[in-house]
Simulated assay, not measured.
Amino acid sequence: MLNTLSISNYRSLVKLVIPLGRLNLITGANASGKSNLYKALRLLAETAQGGVVNALAKEGGLEACFWAGPEVISDRMRRSEIPIQGGPRSKAKRLRLGFTGDDFGYSISLGLPKPSNSAFSLDPEIKRECIWACRSGSSTYRPASSLIDRDTSLIKIREKRNWQVMSQNIATFDSIFSQISDPDKTPEVITLRDNIRHWRFYDHFRSDMDAPARHAQLGTRTPVLHHDGRDLAAALQTINEIGSHEALADAISDAFPGAHLKIAIKEDARFAIEFYQYGLLRPLSGQELSDGTLRYLLWVAALLTPRPPPLMVLNEPETSLHPDLLPALARLIISASERTQVWVVSHASRLIAALEEHEDCHSIRLKKELGETSVVGQGMLDEPHWVWPDASK
């Protein structure tokens, strides 16, 4: 489980360090930085997929992702080690992302390359990557707890009390996760990489009339719903067979009293939804379902997965749902948080209220002042201690 997330110099997230729980609710007004926090977490996930440079390119390049707030620097920012372009303490600009978990911490620092004639001269470079051990009582980075230290093209690994050079020519666009795979010398790299690769993001379920989820699809066992929901019928049938049939039935009746669901398997092995609603003489097909009903079924399939991930991130799950469905959705999310760490990014007051009734809900409300995102009610003393390995650069 992630215990702390830290982001530096990414859009409005100038210096953000937040503690995390089992169920995390991210709220705030429009333009407060919720989307930036979500995107930063996705960038962290891309490090283990080998796609962080490409992901930054899709956002307009590293330069476009740097904080672009006012030139006047607040006292909070002046006390930090954050490099601010044009400020009196300006240094080489870095975008930094990091987290601590139960066993390990990880951080990555990205910067602009030196000017060159290369066609890829605007690609960001990985300047520093570190993995350290998280011990009880202290999870922040300390040189003594460091296990893997990558400085530009040089990778060192700790063996007992000594450092050993593992590579001196790693490409500056490659993460250590894609370059190190020795289970004996660097088991922590493999553990973290596999953990991050299993993070699951849901932020865009199609519900238009041409959405694949509305139509019969070739079905195979589907313990993990596709991020766009294309294999909904197969995922629901998988829950019926190897997941919790009772939980699925309860989730349907909780939102639609008297309703139940059946998956029809056609002769050509295609799976289709049949939704039986109280008072109707025949089931509704996927094409006949309202956007809200279809989206709720998609969330049911995602949250009742028989193969829960280490982390599941839901971005505005209230989209297209009638407010009366939000308490049932909240109960689904709370139940899922008992099996996996959950993030919910939302601005729906009814969903927020239902989630915050749960005693383990960790509510994080964001605000923005002078272009900088911060956590409401979090002062300097409330902020978890965090040290960047390359804070002096």
Rank of each mutant, 00 (worst) to 15 (best):
Met1Thr: 12
Leu2Ala: 03
Leu2Pro: 02
Arg11Gln: 14
Arg11Pro: 11
Leu16Trp: 04
Leu23Arg: 05
Thr27Asp: 02
Thr27Tyr: 00
Ala29Thr: 12
Lys34Met: 07
Asn36Ser: 15
Leu37Cys: 04
Gly50Cys: 03
Lys58Arg: 15
Gly61Asn: 12
Cys65Lys: 02
Met77Tyr: 08
Arg96Cys: 13
Phe99Trp: 06
Thr100Phe: 03
Gly111Ala: 15
Ser118Met: 05
Ala119Glu: 13
Glu129Gln: 09
Ile131Arg: 00
Ser136Asn: 13
Ser136Trp: 08
Leu147Cys: 08
Asp149Ser: 13
Thr152Asn: 11
Ile155Glu: 11
Glu159Pro: 05
Ser167Val: 09
Ile170Arg: 12
Ala171Asp: 15
Ile176Trp: 01
Gln179Tyr: 12
Ile180Thr: 05
Thr186Val: 03
Leu192Cys: 10
Asn195Leu: 15
Tyr202Phe: 11
His215Met: 03
Leu218Phe: 08
His226Tyr: 11
Arg230Ala: 14
Ala233Ser: 09
Ile242Glu: 02
Gly243Asp: 04
Ala251Ile: 07
Phe256Gly: 01
Gly258Met: 06
Ala264Gly: 13
Leu280Glu: 07
Pro283Tyr: 02
Leu298Phe: 12
Thr319His: 07
Leu351Tyr: 01
Glu356Gln: 13
His362Lys: 06
His362Asp: 03
Leu366Glu: 00
Leu366Ser: 01
Leu370His: 12
Gly377Pro: 11
Gln378Asp: 08
Pro384Val: 09
Asp390Ile: 09
